[in-house]
């Protein structure tokens, strides 16, 4: 029977990362930026552009690597039948504050294009798409907190209409030291394979509430 299944998921928070419910990496006593660099090295992604990204994009990139890599090999989902649908509550405010610092003082007014370009939340969708050559649907929603019902409804609607066949979906929050990510890979498959999880709001909620 064709259905929608969560075929992979990850959590990154409290300087720890888990994949499909299993802890895979932790680095305590580091700040967010250092933790991201350590996780990047652990994933052995060989993608120098990572270092240019702001923290929101790094978090999104690392999450997508975690769910797409199986046994160290990245599954390729290039093309227009994969969507990237993400949400958070603070948009790009973390980087907005950095840009504001560069313009606050007229005597030292040096707005940086490399900072400004990240003052949009959907840039992380672009980064994930560039990395994976994904050209499908993309949207970034801002909501007070994760809304599993809305996310599930909307992604189901995209899958039902065959606008996409699979979706990278998640909650990516970076606001100062508040760093919190949950990302899922949702696929339309013909037969449920054991271990695959039904794509339902309650499951999304359970995954998000997992303790690492």
């Amino acid at each position: 029977m064709t259905g929608y299944y969560i075929t992979g998921y990850c959590i990154i928070r409290n300087n720890e990362a888990s994949v499909n419910g299993k802890p895979v990496f932790s680095a305590h006593g580091k700040n967010t930026r250092e933790f991201f660099t350590d996780l990047y090295k652990f994933l052995d992604s060989d993608y120098p552009k990572f270092h240019k990204m702001d923290n929101l994009c790094k978090l999104g990139f690392l999450s997508s690597e975690l769910i797409l890599k199986k046994n160290g090999v990245r599954t390729i989902f290039s093309g227009s039948d994969t969507g990237v649908i993400l949400a958070n509550s603070s948009s790009s405010l973390d980087t907005d504050r950095m840009h504001q610092v560069t313009i606050i003082n007229r005597a030292a007014y040096f707005p940086s294009p490399a900072v400004f370009v990240y003052t949009l939340p959907n840039i992380v969708i672009g980064e994930i798409c560039i990395r994976n050559k994904i050209t499908g649907e993309g949207s970034f929603f801002i909501q007070e907190k994760l809304n599993p019902v809305f996310l599930t409804d909307y992604i189901r609607c995209l899958l039902d209409c065959e606008i996409i066949n699979r979706c990278i979906a998640g909650w990516l929050q970076v606001d100062g030291d508040d760093c919190d990510a949950m990302m899922c890979l949702i696929e339309k498959t013909d037969k449920p394979i054991s271990g695959f999880v039904n794509f339902e709001p309650s499951v999304i909620r359970d995954i998000y509430n997992l303790r690492i």
Partner: peptide, 17 residues
């Protein structure tokens, strides 16, 4: 170095700053 258009703009900021 694999630099792009944003890097070029960033270098102009560096020279000015």
């Amino acid at each position: 170095l694999g630099l792009d258009s944003i890097d070029a703009l960033e270098l102009t900021v560096l020279l000015e700053k």
